[in-house]
Simulated scan of single mutants.
Amino acid sequence: MADEVKLFAIAISPFVCRVKLALNMKGIKYQNLEEDFPNRSTQLLRYNPLHKKVPVLVHNGNPISESLVIVEYIDDVWKQVPIFPQDPYQKAVARFWVKFIDEKCIPALHNVFGNNGGEQVVAEACENLQVLENEVGVKGKRFFGGDNMDIVDIVAGFIAYWLGLMEEATQIKIFTEDKFPKLTKWSDEFVNCQVVKEILPPRSLEILPPRSLVLAYYKKRFSKG
């Protein structure tokens, strides 16, 4: 009997895209259930009553919430194309970088656009990006995970794609090739991978909104008036 896999999603969410990328990397077929926020479906509220948000993966009737928890679950259940390193030490290192990106980098970037590009918040965001600049491409690696993407690349995908949309929406540019050449090269490699292109808003328009709608979301979010 085939697995039943459903994903409660919203296309503009980078956290949903993490899960879609993990499923795509593994070649797992799933039913994409697009939510209409703020009108959450009764199913979503039943499966995630605590946070009432996406993503929620439902595997054979069992719901799993929170993007990183879902991705790790996917990696544990479907063994093909590992997302987390198999070596315990390397796995711990990957988790360290995931935590750094989620708890330091992404909040700092949001602060830049939420505070109209203030000098102090820009400096903090660039300092965090510089840490990643120093890490990616070490010893000629194509991705953070080496020659193939891993969990760090999935989480850092926010920088590769969504950061550019926020910059375009606010006309505040901090992520430039001259400042971050290795991170820019990594970003280009990431967004041009077929498994990534298939789940980003410019593609698969039958189930995802055009890029312009995602851009409009960020313009509204960071608007000052």
Rank of each mutant, 00 (worst) to 15 (best):
F144P: 00
N148C: 09
A92Y: 02
L165F: 11
A123L: 13
H110D: 11
V138W: 03
G145D: 09
V131K: 08
L165R: 04
E168Q: 14
G117H: 10
I172Y: 05
F113T: 10
V121E: 15
K104T: 02
N116F: 13
A125Y: 02
T170N: 05
K141S: 13
V98A: 05
K91D: 08
K91C: 06
F143K: 05
V131L: 11
D178V: 15
L109G: 07
T176G: 09
E177M: 05
G157L: 05
G146V: 08
G114V: 03
K104M: 00
E177V: 13
E133G: 04
E177C: 06
P107C: 03
N148M: 10
I154K: 08
M149V: 12
E103S: 12
E167K: 07
A94Y: 05
V138F: 02
A125I: 08
K173M: 15
G137R: 04
K104P: 00
G114H: 10
G137P: 02
L132Y: 00
N115Y: 09
Q90T: 11
G118C: 10
I172G: 09
F144K: 00
V136S: 02
V138Y: 07
Y89L: 14
T176A: 10
Q90V: 11
F158Q: 03
K99L: 06
K99P: 07
R95E: 02
V136I: 11
N128F: 11
G140P: 04
M166E: 09
F96R: 04
K99F: 01
E133W: 02
D150S: 12
R142T: 15
K139P: 02
V112D: 01
D147A: 11
N148I: 08
G117M: 08
K99V: 03
E103D: 15
L129C: 03
K99G: 08
P107N: 03
L132F: 00
I101N: 01
V122Q: 14
G157Q: 07
D150T: 11
